[in-house]
Amino acid sequence: MTDAPASAAAPRRIAVPQKLLAFASLIVLLVFFSVASPNFLQTSNILAILQATAVNGVLAIGVTMIIITGGIDLSIGTLMTFCAVTAGVILTFWGLPLPLGVLGAIGMGAFCGLVSGTLVSRMNIPPFIATLGMMLILKGLSLVVSGTKPIYFNDTPSYPEIAQGSLIGDLIPAVPVPNAVLILFLLAALMGWVLNRTVLGRYCFAIGSNEEAVRLSGVDTRWWKTAIYVLGGAICGVAGLIISSRLNSAQPALGLGYELDAIAAVVIGGTSLAGGRGSILGTVIGALIMAVLLNGLRILSVAQEWQTVVTGLIIIAAVYLDMFRRGKAAG
């Protein structure tokens, strides 16, 4: 306790984890909408919310790790599309079997992550700029490769099953959870484990906390940072599979804007854009909050324009609350 006055110089903190705060907000929203509309708490509507969370949630999980290292990836939306287009090329143009399409999409994601990661960690280009460039490159490439037209998966009849089928529903017919949602939660569990239990996860936090100290500890930070972008890219591949499976087509013009929704979910979930702090659980809750909000407002017949306004307000409120909680608010 003799050292305490030094630490007491830090402003007062209220010991509420952001995860709890986000979780409480989610509960409040759920209660509010169920009271406001009897249609909200229907099984079909809950499934619709989960379904709507899937793509954004998966992208957000991928970018969470990158943000924890203190980086950012703006290319995740168009990379998702490019991965979907890659699957389309492999399955529809080349007529190869489904597993190759799946591997191809994820592999392309990982490869593009490798490019971003190399730009950021070896060539020292600021992540914002490097991935802004990648965002545009991939948007363009998606249009070029697809000939600006959607690629339909007509030759692969089982393709829609990836997202829309229900492995759980096959086993327990009462719970027809679509595979997209299953993938989201499995991936969340896996990445939560990676982040909290493995060396890779530990280095995510350490690099975000103090990259130079990690480097001077003899850790090859460039390698690990690249690896984290590769993993993030591979996860974009998964998102690409989900979205194209749901649309039964790869839509090359889609993708722009998804990165910002994903980053919003990450931020609402309490991950700090400054790096060093964050969680997968928070991110999933953040993505759920966004989906619940949009769904609820739609059920209450709020115009779509206003739904967007509310989402913006929520993001600002979430970050402000987080700062307030950590005692960094102005005043």
């Binding site: 936090f205 906390s209 103090n210 100290a213 001077l216 060093g276 702090r277």
Partner: peptide
């Protein structure tokens, strides 16, 4: 700046 990740615990 160069020795510690200040926000992480002693163990880490």
């Amino acid at each position: 700046h160069f020795g510690l990740a200040l926000g992480m615990d002693v163990r880490a």
